[in-house]
Lab assay of single mutants.
Amino acid sequence: MDPFVVLVLCLSCLLLLSIWRQSSGRGKLPPGPTPLPVIGNILQIDIKDVSKSLTNLSKIYGPVFTLYFGLERMVVLHGYEVVKEALIDLGEEFSGRGHFPLAERANRGFGIVFSNGKRWKEIRRFSLMTLRNFGMGKRSIEDRVQEEARCLVEELRKTKASPCDPTFILGCAPCNVICSIIFQKRFDYKDQQFLNLMEKLNENIRIVSTPWIQICNNFPTIIDYFPGTHNKLLKNLAFMESDILEKVKEHQESMDINNPRDFIDCFLIKMEKEKQNQQSEFTIENLVITAADLLGAGTETTSTTLRYALLLLLKHPEVTAKVQEEIERVIGRNRSPCMQDRGHMPYTDAVVHEVQRYIDLIPTSLPHAVTCDVKFRNYLIPKGTTILTSLTSVLHDNKEFPNPEMFDPRHFLDEGGNFKKSNYFMPFSAGKRICVGEGLARMELFLFLTFILQNFNLKSLIDPKDLDTTPVVNGFASVPPFYQLCFIPV
Rank of each mutant, 00 (worst) to 15 (best):
D293T: 05
V113C: 07
L15H: 06
K270Q: 12
E326W: 02
E155Q: 11
N217T: 10
G91Q: 12
R150Q: 14
F126H: 09
S390R: 02
F282P: 01
P367H: 04
N403P: 02
N455K: 15
A369Q: 13
N258M: 11
T386S: 10
T130L: 09
P427Y: 02
T159C: 10
D265F: 01
F263L: 10
Y308R: 04
H230Y: 08
F419G: 02
K399R: 14
D49V: 02
L131Y: 04
L201G: 04
S429N: 02
D349Q: 13
V330K: 09
L461P: 13
K185T: 09
K138R: 13
I207H: 07
F194C: 05
F482I: 14
T229C: 15
D265S: 03
K273A: 12
V351I: 05
D408V: 03
L233N: 03
K249R: 10
H344N: 15
Q22H: 13
N259K: 13
D293C: 05
V82H: 07
I123K: 01
R119G: 09
L87M: 10
C13R: 00
T320G: 09
L7R: 04
K28A: 11
G298I: 03
D191C: 09
L195F: 08
A238G: 09
I264T: 08
D360F: 01
G296D: 15
G135T: 15
T450E: 03
K432V: 08
N457S: 13
V374G: 00
I169T: 09
E142I: 06
Q324V: 14
G96H: 10
F376A: 01
I205E: 10
H353C: 09
S53V: 03
S429M: 03
I181N: 02
I123W: 02
A297H: 08
K399P: 02
K200M: 15
K273T: 13
I257Q: 10
K275V: 09
H316A: 07
E285L: 06
F126D: 01
N196C: 14
S115N: 06
D360P: 10
C10H: 01
Q214M: 07
S51D: 05
G111D: 03
A321V: 13
N56H: 15
V352L: 12
D468L: 10
I462C: 15
V436R: 00
L310K: 01
L201W: 04
F282Q: 02
L15R: 03
P37V: 00
D89M: 07
D243R: 14
I123L: 13
H368V: 03
T34C: 13
I381Q: 03
P260N: 03
Q193K: 12
K232Q: 10
R21T: 07
P101H: 11
L131P: 02
D341H: 09
V153R: 03
N56L: 11
T55L: 10
A106C: 07
P367W: 06
S24G: 12
G332A: 02
A369I: 07
V8M: 12
G296I: 15
E85C: 06
R433V: 03
I123Q: 05
R26T: 10
T305R: 02
K121G: 10
R206A: 12
M240V: 14
L485M: 14
